[in-house]
Amino acid sequence: MSTPTTADQTGTGRLAELFARTRAEGRAALVGYLPAGYPDPATSRRLFAAMVEGGCDLVEVGLPFSDPVLDGPVIQAAAQTALAAGWHTRDVFDLVGSVTRAGGQAVVMTYFNPVLAYGADAFARDLAAVGGAGVITPDLIVDEADEWTAAAEAHGVAPIFLVAPSSPTERIARTTAATRGFLYAASVMGVTGGRDQVGAGAADLVARCRAVTDLPIGVGLGVRTAEQAAQIAGFADAVIVGSAFVQAAGPDGTDVEGVRRLATELARGVRAASA
């Protein structure tokens, strides 16, 4: 992978630039997740735009999947709504393009079977073409990822893998070696969804990751308030918020202002940690 410079316009390069900027500002990045196509394609674009305008440094475009084993009930239900509204994998490129054309940065989060069905190389190629920076793959472990990392590398899209509190150091090292852009650290052993407390193990996991990699580290799963965001921003490079955005969009997914408000509040949170 090429050394990140301002001239590196690959997805990996743009992520490096993003984290260089937030580090220079002495704060963590805010990453906001929503399922793509929820509740319908047009409203979904407005929700993602609101996350960017509200202060998300990066948006995570969740590709709806029929069998999301790492998601809790909130995201499951939203993904199912998107699928019922006629979602197709190719729609993700329009959505990512709408974010990047408006000056935002986007990564896709997807279970791996839709990528396999689309074709790993074609997926990376088409995502790169619309300015997508990377792909988070929650059910792809590094042991099974050779074909995907080769495709991602070929098109300059960052393959972003997850590590968990249960990951031994040896696996963290192998996972980080295959990861580009940033590393996704799951704060708790569990599925997505708001929790009152972020796992106490999150800081420990981040520390174990720092011992083996210089990659920026994002912490996700269970973050829903500005206070939690501030707490995580104290030890991580990015705070990742998902289910709370789905809830902020309201029961029918149309509360664009609610999403904007939450993004604004969380953006204050990631800045509060350094204050």
């Binding site: 059910d139 472990i141 042991d143 099974e144 893998f161 997850l162 968990a164 990951s167």
Partner: peptide
């Protein structure tokens, strides 16, 4: 060793379960 019968099998699931 990786649980493959020919081209089928393996472990296609979250990292959090690999230890278990």
């Amino acid at each position: 060793e990786r649980g493959y019968f020919g081209r089928f099998g393996g472990r296609w699931l979250p990292e959090a379960l690999v230890g278990a």
